[in-house]
């Protein structure tokens, strides 16, 4: 073989290698990206979606989240922060009014277990901060706030603007915003005609479509060990899952774990449950419901009553003694993966 031919053969081989590299990069069909938004991971996993369209969807969702952040962040410079700290401030923007009305709808639906008017309680427990530190709250102040029964119902709509009629009312939409973000993402996927993507915002997951020949499959973290899996669940297209737990933002004081989830009924940062997980079948506001519906079961001392009050079947709760309480409907969906003997599963 002539040297020139050899040289040509070498570059042909190199060209084939480049083609192979390109095909191996795309053969997985999945395109994943993670972002850090408000100190929480926002994760996308696209299946068979052109990269350009996926990037556009992610960029649009993040832009909307940044806008929400500038309006609703409860302790950084935002319109709600100003409203909370100024007794005479009002909310007049139509979009914000609609968001607050939506939050009030869920406050009623959960019989007050989800309460976006208890910002003052969350602040008093020290959870309006980027870094959580141990704090003993002023219990007399907590009692005063609880006795004032803060509710979004105490916002008076006057001349198209909301004004406070309870001095202790402070708005905190932290319990709804992750779920709302999932619904924004869903709308974005529909707009861009994206068929298959899994979106995880701070643990709340929405399944849009499904990968080929299977459903999206999610692991549920063990509430007592962040490195282990408690169970697995298949998410049909359009469904979502959400968990409220005492292991994400918390501090420990004298052996008791105080979580950022504050019980609106008694102002306490302590619950007998370590986590509550809900599955939401495909429906409107699926993301929002995945965020809100776990809270009543996390706080409730009477799960059966709360189940009937909310007319909701797909949930399970883990308590501090490693008991799992689960409905029959949820049990049919779940695959347990915990070590034998670690948990005791009981029906509700």
């Amino acid at each position: 073989m002539l040297p020139r031919q050899l040289f040509k053969a070498f570059f042909n081989l190199l060209f084939i290698c480049l083609l192979l590299l390109n095909s191996s990069c795309t053969k997985s069909n999945f395109y994943e990206k993670k972002f850090l938004i408000y100190g929480t991971i926002l994760e996308f996993k696209f299946f068979q979606t052109p990269k350009k369209i996926a990037d556009e969807a992610m960029s649009n969702v993040i832009a909307q989240l940044n806008e929400l952040n500038s309006i609703f962040h409860p302790w950084q410079d935002s319109l709600i922060e100003e409203f909370n700290n100024n007794p005479n401030a009002t909310i007049c923007d139509e979009q914000q009014i609609q968001m607050i009305k939506k939050a009030f709808h869920y406050e009623k639906l959960t019989h007050g277990y989800f309460n976006p008017a208890i910002g003052a309680l969350i602040k008093e427990w020290g959870f309006h901060a980027d870094e959580i530190t141990k704090k003993t709250p002023d219990y007399s102040l907590i009692e005063k706030i609880v006795n004032s029964r803060p509710s979004l119902n105490q916002l008076n709509l006057k001349k198209g603007c909301f004004e406070k009629i309870n001095h202790y009312l402070q708005i905190d939409l932290g319990g709804i915003i992750k779920g709302h973000a999932l619904d924004l993402a869903k709308a974005e996927y529909q707009k861009l005609n994206i068929k298959n993507v899994l979106t995880n915002f701070g643990g709340n997951i929405y399944a849009h479509g499904n990968p080929k020949n299977r459903f999206w499959e999610v692991a549920i973290q063990d509430p007592f060990d962040q490195t282990k899996i408690l169970a697995k669940l298949k998410l049909p297209p359009g469904s979502a899952i959400g968990t409220s737990g005492n292991y994400e933002k918390y501090f420990i004081n004298e052996g008791i774990r105080y979580s950022h989830l504050i019980n609106p009924k008694n102002g306490n940062a302590f619950s007998n449950h370590s986590s509550a997980t809900v599955f939401i079948s495909p429906q409107d506001e699926v993301g929002l419901k995945s965020d809100v519906f776990s809270k009543p079961f996390y706080f409730s001392d009477d799960l059966k009553k709360t189940q009937l009050d909310m007319n909701f079947d797909y949930f399970f709760v883990t308590d501090l003694n490693h008991n799992i309480y689960i409905t029959k409907s949820m049990l049919e969906k779940i695959e347990w993966l915990f070590e034998e003997g670690k948990y005791f599963v009981q029906g509700i």
Partner: peptide, 11 residues
């Protein structure tokens, strides 16, 4: 990664 294959983790 956690032992079992899954697409994402709920927490």
């Amino acid at each position: 990664q956690n032992m079992d294959a899954h697409d994402s983790t709920n927490y």
